[in-house]
């Protein structure tokens, strides 16, 4: 029953999707040359109509995309062809609509004036202005510290939370399971908001600057590390847990003496990698006023001082590369 409804839902979706793309994007923007038509009764009827037609046809004749997706195959050769064609039409329409919506324009890419401008910038990028290296280095250090502080502040929170976000430690009753679900939900939610957006939120809250950038990274790092740590905890060898339990140890002792020792090294490894990631993220966050090298970059870009921009870009690339090598080496040594 549930499966049948799901199949019907998929068919309805495909019908509505095909009708919407044709009616809202392809006809007005390609055929009618940018004439926007109101989404009135007739258009609505078209969308709903095609959705219903596909759903009804799908369930009556079994020529159904829903069936194709859920079961992996459709019985009957012409039904199969129809279902496959509906799927292909949807894909083709998506590519077409995507092309139109993105405004892909080869002529703009190879336009003479544009190329000239790009040439100027690239030339400037390769003739960096070394006068600003001092201040750029200082800003870079700010970014690295920002990333370091964000990681350092987040680690204790992640460490504590991760044990309550590990399924294997939280499956002994309704209350622990609720805590597990709650923490997983909150961390998944906060992680799905990009640090860049957190930075915008915090720059309103505490004012533009490195502090806002750091707070943004702290939030993102807590949720990311909690996820990584807790997945590591879920992976531990249960043998030692059983052995410590068998001595009559308490639940806390079991976690501390059998789970933690197995996790310390992977946790360290995740943390160093996260610092590495945070340096890159801190650079990007700087672009929206999070301080450090990113802010410096966006300022020179605003003034169209491309040689200075070039200096900063090279510096960022160098630092990211060095951090990458160092963190990989450390993680390798920890194994």
């Amino acid at each position: 029953m549930k499966r049948h409804l799901l199949r019907l839902g998929i068919d309805v979706f495909f019908g509505a999707y095909i009708a919407t793309i044709i009616d809202r994007i392809l006809i007005p923007r390609v055929i009618l040359d940018n004439v926007t038509t109101p989404f009135d009764g007739m258009h609505q009827a078209l969308v709903i109509g095609l959705a219903l037609v596909l759903a009804v046809l799908g369930s009556v004749t079994s020529a159904s995309v829903g069936r194709l997706i859920l079961d992996g195959s459709v019985s009957g050769s012409w039904q199969r062809t129809v279902a496959m064609n509906i799927a292909w039409i949807s894909f083709t329409l998506t590519v077409l609509a995507g092309w139109v919506v993105t405004g892909i324009s080869p002529s703009a890419l190879f336009n003479g004036q544009g190329l000239e401008g790009a040439g100027r910038i690239f030339k400037a990028l390769f003739t960096p202005n070394t006068d600003i290296i001092g201040s750029a280095l200082l800003a870079m250090v700010e970014t690295i510290y920002l990333a370091f502080m964000a990681t350092a502040i987040a680690v204790p929170f992640s460490f504590a939370l991760s044990f309550f976000a590990a399924r294997n430690l939280m499956d002994h009753g309704a209350i622990p399971r609720t805590i597990y679900v709650a923490i997983r939900f909150v961390t998944n939610f906060t992680r799905s908001i990009e640090p860049l957006i957190w930075a915008i939120i915090f720059s309103v809250w505490v004012g533009i600057g490195p502090f806002a950038g750091m707070l943004a990274l702290v939030v993102h790092t807590i949720s990311s590390l909690t996820k990584q740590y807790s997945e590591q905890i879920e992976d531990v060898d249960t043998g030692p847990m059983e052995a410590i339990s068998a001595t009559g140890a308490s639940r806390t002792q079991v976690v501390w003496f059998s789970v933690v020792p197995q996790c310390v090294i992977p946790f360290l490894s995740f943390t160093i990698y996260r610092w590495d990631i945070n340096v890159r993220m801190a650079t990007v966050i700087g672009l929206v006023g999070g301080g450090g090298i990113g802010t410096m970059l966006i300022q020179y870009q605003g003034l169209a001082q491309w040689r200075e921009v070039g200096t900063i870009v090279i510096l960022i690339a160098l630092v990211v590369w060095i951090m990458d090598v160092i963190s990989a080496r450390i993680r390798e040594a920890l194994k």
Binding site: P240, Q253, F257, Q262
Partner: peptide, 26 residues
């Protein structure tokens, strides 16, 4: 089922965990 990274002595001591309070042992 020993704690691999810990010393033989500590592993032996863990047999006494049941007799110790959580705080004390941790």
């Amino acid at each position: 089922n020993l704690i691999k990274r810990h010393s033989v002595l500590r592993n032996t001591l863990y047999g006494a965990l049941g007799q110790l309070s959580s705080m004390q042992s941790m």
